[in-house]
């Protein structure tokens, strides 16, 4: 059991290189195909279109010809909550414990049979990573054959979200049990569907706690709380890496990487002059 795997709990996270991301959408489709996400005839109202992984289009706001755009894939951030104690914005508000924070993996679960659709978690999540089944999912006649047994298809009236392909973690643990080393999940044994699908390998997924994993080497998370904002823990020591809305103290586990300063600046809100102070911060200095 990983609960007592000599307390080296995992902390699965992801870093996405926005300079490599081409906005092609492979991650969106791979995620939908892997997790039995339904589709409707008209999905053009992006406010009730269920895409666990959504690719946002960012712009530097300048006018022609200096305008620039970048793409930002946004899965569920699996927030660790203030001080990384597991009180994610959504977990702390769900009235029926339909979503909880797995301290052994750092993954925020969503249980479709417990959720009764009050949608409070959707209001609490600042990343809009939670989707509600406004319609009863229906697959055209014959297409239910491609549904995967690893993820239970949902029903109308409940909230669903990215699970970091937790079923792949379950399969990896089964394999580890079978081969006798139940507490050691190899890096390549548990990779999410979007990571494996990305044609430009822009997404790197792994255990943030394990220095041997690529994601840890890129992000170099700082275990101590940030002196200027004690809610923030695990801030990246790589100046090119940032997190979305880090100042809110949600402590997301999805990091983003970009060489372009205007892209990094879109990660959070800054008052006048704040950005220049921390523009190329190295390590623990953070914005107050």
């Amino acid at each position: 059991m990983t609960q007592d795997n000599h307390n080296n709990a995992y902390k699965f996270g992801m870093v996405i290189d926005l300079d490599k991301c081409t906005g092609c959408g492979s991650c969106m489709v791979s995620c939908m195909s892997e997790n039995n996400v339904p589709f409707k005839e008209d999905e053009s109202n992006k406010r009730d279109s269920i895409t666990w992984m959504r690719v946002y289009k960012l712009t530097n706001g300048k006018s022609f010809p200096d305008t620039e755009i970048a793409y930002l894939p946004r899965p569920c951030q699996h927030c660790g909550g203030e001080g990384d104690h597991g009180h994610s914005p959504c977990v702390s508000v769900c009235p029926a414990t339909a979503t909880d924070y797995g301290y052994d993996t750092g993954i925020v679960s969503q249980i479709y049979t417990r959720c009764f659709g009050c949608r409070y978690c959707m209001g609490a999540c600042p990343y809009h990573a939670r989707y509600f089944n406004w319609w009863d999912p229906k697959w055209p006649e014959g297409m239910e054959k491609y549904l995967s047994p690893d993820v239970s298809p949902r029903m109308r009236g409940i909230v669903e979200k990215c699970s970091f392909c937790y079923h792949r973690y379950q399969a990896a643990r089964d394999k580890a049990y079978y081969h006798g080393d139940k507490d050691h999940i190899k890096e390549e044994d548990y990779q999410t569907a979007c990571t494996t699908a990305c044609p430009s390998n822009a997404i790197t997924f792994g255990d943030l706690n394990n220095p041997a994993h690529k994601v840890h080497q890129i992000v170099k998370p700082d275990p101590h709380p940030d002196p200027r904002n004690h809610h923030v823990v695990g801030k990246s020591r790589n100046p090119k890496v940032f997190r979305l809305l880090e100042r809110l103290g949600t402590n997301p586990k999805v990091y983003y990487l970009s060489e372009r300063e205007w892209v990094r600046k879109q990660g959070d809100h800054y008052l006048e002059g704040e950005w220049d102070k921390i523009k190329n911060h190295h390590g623990t200095t953070s914005h107050g």
């Binding site: 492979s26 297409m143 491609y146």
Partner: peptide, 14 residues
């Protein structure tokens, strides 16, 4: 890697 149309191939099959 694979592009999104290849990944969604099963929707052509069924």
């Amino acid at each position: 890697g694979a592009c999104l149309h290849g990944i969604a191939g099963l929707q052509y099959l069924y």
